[in-house]
């Protein structure tokens, strides 16, 4: 009993300590942004590796999720003779929830883990120390460009996920199940609001998720114990923590934007 309490206390302290360090890290990261603004090319190069290279998995997943939505939506709506609302169901679920959330989870697995491992390995092989000794600040040269590129990539990936998902839903609903094409699109057009659904859902949510996912990924790499086990632990933490935090934050944002 006492032992359990003690363990609880210790792990709480451990996490508070990490949260504190992560916050300090974030502050230094933000203070490096003006330097980065003078050399945007650094972030653009990272945009390729976190963004472009994540495209295939994002597009593929979006397609399948959209197709599943089409099938499930049809199976449920057909009893009410409401299959013409299928376009609306597919688009709203994707734009409000599935697009940003799944894109963020996939991003953590594909790009976040890679960021953590890359930075952790740079630390282990003393590349970051060498950089500091060359009077080059890793915050401006390594961490900030990755962080910023990730935040830019996230809404774009979520947008692509959503768009491809809608196409997948369209394919199943209209091409396979015979829903009227005109109804599919016009229902979608009349119910999906640009500000309420697309901006709040896809854009704002995924910018927040991008912030969280990249902050965690870059921090875990920075904070990794410089050994092979340290890096593997840090990579796992990135994926697990990002997933948990994204889902929790999603609940809060959904309550804010879409709650009654």
């Amino acid at each position: 009993m006492i032992d359990g309490l003690r363990r609880l206390g210790r792990s709480t302290l451990f996490w508070l300590n990490r949260l504190g360090r992560a916050t300090l890290f974030l502050l230094r990261l933000l203070s490096a942004l003006p330097t980065l603004a003078k050399r945007p090319s650094l972030a653009i190069r990272q945009l390729y590796s976190v963004g472009v290279l994540s495209l295939p998995i994002i597009a593929m997943s979006g397609l399948f999720v959209g197709m599943v939505l089409g099938l499930q939506g049809y199976a449920n709506l057909v009893d009410f003779g409401a299959t013409s609302s299928l376009g609306r169901v597919v688009a709203l679920s994707l734009a409000r929830e599935l697009g940003p959330v799944l894109a963020a989870l996939l991003y953590a697995a594909r790009a976040g883990s890679a960021l953590t491992a890359e930075i952790g390995l740079m630390k282990t092989t003393e590349q970051l120390s060498a950089m500091q000794m060359m009077a080059v600040d890793p915050f401006a040269r390594v961490y900030a460009p990755r962080f910023v590129a990730g935040i830019i990539a996230m809404p774009l990936l979520a947008g692509i996920f959503t768009a491809v998902g809608i196409l997948g839903g369209y394919f199943v609903a209209v091409q396979q199940l015979g829903v009227d094409s005109g109804a599919f699109w016009s229902q979608m057009q009349s119910t999906v609001k640009l500000f309420d659904d697309v901006i709040n859902g896809v854009v704002i949510k995924s910018v927040v998720f991008g912030w969280v996912a990249n902050w965690i990924a870059v921090f875990e790499g920075y904070d990794a114990i410089p050994t092979s086990e340290g890096i593997s632990l840090a990579t796992t933490r990135t994926v697990v923590n990002t997933s948990l935090v994204v889902l929790a934050v999603d609940f809060v944002l959904t309550a804010l934007f879409f709650g009654v």
Partner: peptide, 29 residues
């Protein structure tokens, strides 16, 4: 530090840059 320099025990080359770009790195920075 711009005026001091350190050769690390492990070399600590940037693994994503070629030898040429490694040597050019401090000059470009």
């Amino acid at each position: 530090r711009k005026r001091m320099s350190m050769l690390f025990q492990s070399g600590a080359l940037f693994t994503d840059l070629s030898v040429f770009d490694n040597v050019a790195f401090p000059l470009r920075e």
